[in-house]
């Protein structure tokens, strides 16, 4: 893919955005009636569906139960039709297992698990269409789903993937930008305290640029958190109107 200019001279990216502009976020909560919490989130062309069950009794082996906290069980999978070529193994391969572990780690930091000892919270995320920033979209969708389920969290968990091209950080990468061997950093943030729940970076980046990149990621995450906040308030309003309060 040589020759594709990821950042033009006027500062426009492949899809016409500016360097620090996020993609359009559209979300809906409560899409499934039978799940405790569910949410559907679109960020640009990446679409993810998150479903939360819990807190409920530990299924399977009792030995996994923690005496003072809830166990969070995450599963990440991609639909076979989500990528340009049909995905042959939607879950069980190493990348999906790694993603599931990362999601688990992120939510263990944010969800107040001490309130539910000896129980289990399940979070299932499925990518319906993949166009870059899979991890971030999953985290955002899962946050909304957890809020929809009414499970107490310390703060919104917002995630964003940023890349570094021509000395400029690009926020919210799409697939073309990600695959162009750009150094990409995925960050999951709790915006109020500025605490980083997960930090993941691939590809070479000089140490001096690290600070700028993390700064850009944090700003982008704060932007995402505003949008998520909007979505939650709107959903609450709709729900209260329906119940006639």
């Amino acid at each position: 893919m040589a020759g594709l200019e990821l950042l033009s001279d006027q500062g426009y990216r492949l899809d016409g955005r500016k360097a620090s502009e996020l993609r359009k976020v559209q979300a809906r909560m409560g899409v499934f009636a039978q799940a405790d919490g569910s949410a559907y989130l679109e960020q640009g062309n990446t679409k993810a569906l998150a479903v939360v069950y819990g807190p409920h009794e530990i299924r399977g082996s009792r030995s996994r139960a923690l005496h003072d906290r809830a166990v969070i069980n995450c599963q990440y999978s991609m639909a076979t039709f989500s990528t340009a070529e049909r995905k042959r193994r939607p879950h069980g391969d190493r990348k999906s297992t790694e993603m599931s572990l990362h999601l688990k780690q992120t939510f263990e930091a944010a969800v107040m698990t001490q309130l539910f000892p000896r129980s289990q919270i399940d979070i299932y995320v499925k990518i319906l269409q993949s166009d870059g920033g899979n991890y971030s979209v999953c985290v955002n969708a899962a946050t909304l789903a957890v809020i929809d389920a009414g499970i107490p969290m310390r703060d919104y968990v917002c995630a964003c993937t940023v890349g570094f091209v021509d000395e400029t950080p690009l926020a919210d990468l799409c697939y073309a930008e990600e695959s162009g061997r750009v150094s990409s950093l995925a960050l999951a943030l709790l915006p109020r305290g500025g605490q980083i729940a997960l930090l993941q970076m691939d590809a070479r980046l000089h140490q001096d640029h690290l600070e700028t990149l993390i700064e850009a990621a944090m700003t982008a995450c704060k932007g995402v958190s505003k949008v998520l906040d909007e979505v939650v308030r709107q959903h609450l309003q709709e729900a209260s109107v329906l119940t006639g309060e």
Binding site: L101, H102, Q105, E108, A109, L185, L190, G193, Q195, I196, A197, L198, L199, Q200, M201, D202, A203, R204, L205, H206, Q207, L210
Partner: peptide, 12 residues
Amino acid sequence: EICSIQSSGGIM
């Protein structure tokens, strides 16, 4: 040059 960063475990 940083080649990879990964944080793991439930820390902030």
